[in-house]
Write a protein that binds this DNA or RNA. Structure first.
Length: 722
DNA sequence: GAGCACTGC
């Protein structure tokens, strides 16, 4: 019996003790005088408002500032407004604020537009992929960090911006890391463009940079492009929620760091007395311990994946029935990203009177979704993490312990509305052994895309590039090699013309970008546009456990004996046809609705399909602009499969006697994932798009090809190898 | 015959 079942939690010595401030949340009354007063009152009560003058002064005096603001400090909404009012948008300049997530960019922009009393898209706007709510009058612009990176490809000096604020930098997404490196360079170059030499306060900034490599770098390319033009200095503000501000400060030449107090309620942290052998069982016991012994308030339980969530849900429901009748008012609500949105919404519906809600969540509830009413957090201390092995070209999804920062983030979820409690299902001595923070994404992902982007920005020395944290040399070399094999790089490791430049312009995985270029030569660009759109989104098919058989039958209607790629095309075209026949005279809302219904009937994930349609129209536009020939191979599937072989020759595999496959590039033994339409027939030779290790090494998205095509279509790889 | 955390252009 786990120790907590005997009440084995004890108070931690390092409870989160923070200053408490209260705010009144009254109902929204837009546009009314009362509403404006309410907003003014709320703004004034934010911790950041007390330091407005000081902040503006620091921004004036420092070209780079690190701001550490705890949750609820108001830094994201207020700082841009302070800067605007202080005149940082003179001469039509823009303040840009980047976010790692789309929803954050949208919701914050809406809030700030309301606070300013302006219509969204005017003075205050946002821009994310597929949605641009800005205009020529926009001065405060929220956007995703990936979008600003794309903007930099068109405007390397980021000349429209007077200030760029990188928010949530502690999350260390690839986009954030690359953006920070780029901004450091841009800032240095802009300061040079004004004065012809480096300013005193910029010398400090530039000191950590590799000036020796400027010849092929951003500097020279920008100077060429922007010859004779002068830009005012760029102000850079890096905002982070965590304590490791020194990482950013050091990177930017001992930049000044400021701390702003947050507004979070205290959370009691409790640990188990002993290590738990089974964290699922420990979580179950803790849930019931809270339910029976603690005061009212909902419970948030962090689990690692869908399967765990579903099994815990069943177990909780079983055990509730064994409780005395008066104690059975316990509801379970699951949430994870692949759950259809209407089911995700259940976490927001108020808990019925007298009930306690137990939310079973993946780390979607850590940052992406904020659930109201949480007073208790149960944290087993594990997370399913993706990592990438550059040598094998293989991703893996494995369950690992969380970091300290992650544990802190999770416990903070209990203190949003009042004091809370967090039950960590491991001893305090184990907490001390955790990594401080999660490994930055750039150290555990395929770098091909990053490198292609940097090359397109004129940065050729990737190994010497001044990253915030350097990726493994082997990972860089492997990706350079892949880009070379795809024809994106020349023998001198420069971006090739036109292929490399075209590939860099497309917002896709480089291997998919290349497949579009090839497809225009194979006369099947239409088919390939659909294919890469469908391959770029989360799983298209959705099969709930209880309707697995029905889902299988539905999927058969779309299946192609040639493989998954043509199956995906069939799904896309069927949805197009369905919409074509119905949409005449339908409003956009109505059309979406019947599309959603069609998806449900066919066991297709509506969100994924809609996303794929968005990508399709975007990349189709790019392809047209590039002058790629839009053609269809019609019924000639052979032509399309030959194009797939030509595009994905790096991912070819041959069947072995036991029915497993050998990946030709890496020699690894892999298996076809059972969700593939080719799981049953098991053809001799195939190409695949994904290699992920879970319980086994699985390949997914597979099409059957002829072995001879490989030497014919990719002789530079296959003939050289033999 | 398995099962896939989360983002983003």
């Amino acid at each position: 019996m786990p120790s907590m079942a005997q009440g084995g939690f004890r108070n931690s010595t390092d409870n989160l003790k923070r200053k408490v401030n209260f705010s009144n949340h009254s109902p929204r009354k837009p546009h009314s005088f009362a509403r404006r007063q309410e907003i003014a009152q709320q703004r004034k009560s934010l911790p950041i408002s007390a330091v407005e003058k000081r902040l503006i002064e620091e921004v004036r005096n420092n070209n780079i500032l690190i701001i550490v603001g705890e949750t609820g400090s108001g830094k994201t909404t207020q700082l841009p407004q302070f800067l605007f009012n202080a005149g940082f948008c003179r001469d039509g300049k823009v303040i840009g604020i980047t976010q790692p997530r789309r929803v954050a960019a949208i919701t914050v922009a809406k809030r700030v537009a309301e606070e300013c009393g302006v219509e969204l898209g005017q003075k205050v706007g946002y821009s994310i992929r597929f949605e641009d709510e800005t205009s020529s009058s926009t001065r405060i612009k929220y956007m995703t960090d990936g979008l600003l990176l794309r903007e930099a490809l068109l405007d390397p000096y980021l000349s429209r911006y007077s200030v760029i604020i990188v928010d949530e930098a502690h999350e260390r997404t690839v986009h954030t890391d690359v953006l920070l490196a780029l901004l450091k360079k841009v800032q240095y170059e802009r300061s040079k463009s004004v004065s012809g030499h480096v300013h005193d306060d910029n010398k400090k900034v530039g000191s950590g940079m590799t000036l020796g490599n400027e010849s092929g770098g951003l500097g020279s390319s920008i100077i060429k492009q922007c010859q004779g033009r002068k830009y005012p200095p760029l102000k850079l503000i890096v905002m982070s929620a965590s304590l490791d501000a020194c990482v950013f400060s050091e990177y930017f030449g001992s930049a000044k760091a400021l701390h702003i107090q947050g507004r979070q309620f205290p959370v009691d942290i409790l640990y188990t007395l002993q290590a738990e052998s089974d964290y699922i069982d420990a979580a179950l016991i803790t849930i019931f311990q809270i339910h029976l012994e603690e005061g009212p308030g909902d419970v948030l339980v962090f689990l690692t994946g869908q399967e765990e969530i579903e099994s815990v849900e069943r177990l909780v429901q079983e055990r509730v029935q064994q409780l005395p009748e008066g104690s059975r008012k316990l509801l379970t609500v699951p949430i994870f990203s692949s759950l259809p949105s209407e089911q995700q919404m259940r976490v927001f519906s108020p808990t019925p009177a007298g009930f306690r809600k137990v939310i079973l969540a993946t780390n979607i509830a850590e940052t992406s979704v904020t659930i109201p009413g949480i007073k208790y957090v149960v944290d087993p201390g594990f997370v399913k993490a993706r990592s990438y092995d550059p040598l094998k070209g293989m991703e893996s999804l494995i369950i690992v312990p969380t970091s300290k920062a992650q544990a802190l983030q999770r416990s903070g979820r209990a203190g949003r509305e009042g004091p809370g409690k967090c039950f960590r299902l491991y001893p305090e001595s184990e907490f001390a052994k955790l990594e401080d923070s999660t490994k930055p994404e750039i150290k555990r992902c395929n770098l091909s895309n990053v490198i292609l982007q940097l090359k397109a920005l004129g940065i050729d020395d990737i190994i010497g590039f001044d990253f915030l944290e350097k990726p493994l040399r082997a990972a860089i070399v492997k990706s350079l090699e892949q880009l070379f094999l795809l024809g994106a790089l020349t023998d001198e490791c420069k971006l090739s013309d036109p292929v490399g430049h075209q590939m860099a312009r497309l917002p896709l995985d480089p291997i998919y970008s290349k497949s579009l270029i090839l497809a225009s030569q194979f006369n099947c660009l239409e088919e390939m546009l659909i294919t890469v759109s469908m391959l770029s989104v989360e799983s298209i098919f959705y099969a709930p456990r209880e309707k697995l058989e029905e889902a299988r039958i539905a999927m058969k209607c779309f299946a192609s004996s040639d493989g998954d790629h043509l199956t995906l095309i069939n799904v896309y075209r069927a949805s197009e046809e369905f919409l074509e026949t119905r949409k005449l005279g339908l409003s956009k809302d109505k059309a979406e609705k019947i599309m959603g219904k069609w998806c449900k009937e066919n066991f297709i994930n509506y969100r994924s399909l809609r996303h794929a349609r968005g990508i399709y129209s975007q990349i189709r536009g790019h392809a047209e602009q590039m002058g790629l020939r839009l053609s269809s191979c019609g019924e000639d599937k052979l032509q399309f499969r030959r194009c797939l072989a030509s595009s994905f020759f790096l991912n070819a595999a041959l069947k072995q006697p036991e029915g497993t496959y050998r990946a030709l590039a890496s020699g690894q033994v892999v298996q076809i994932h059972p969700s593939s339409v080719l799981f049953q027939p098991k053809p001799e030779c195939i190409i695949f798009n994904e290699l992920v290790q879970t319980n086994n090494k699985y390949i997914r998205n597979i099409t059957k090809i002829d072995y001879l095509w490989l030497t014919e279509l990719a002789p530079h790889y296959y003939i050289m190898q033999n």
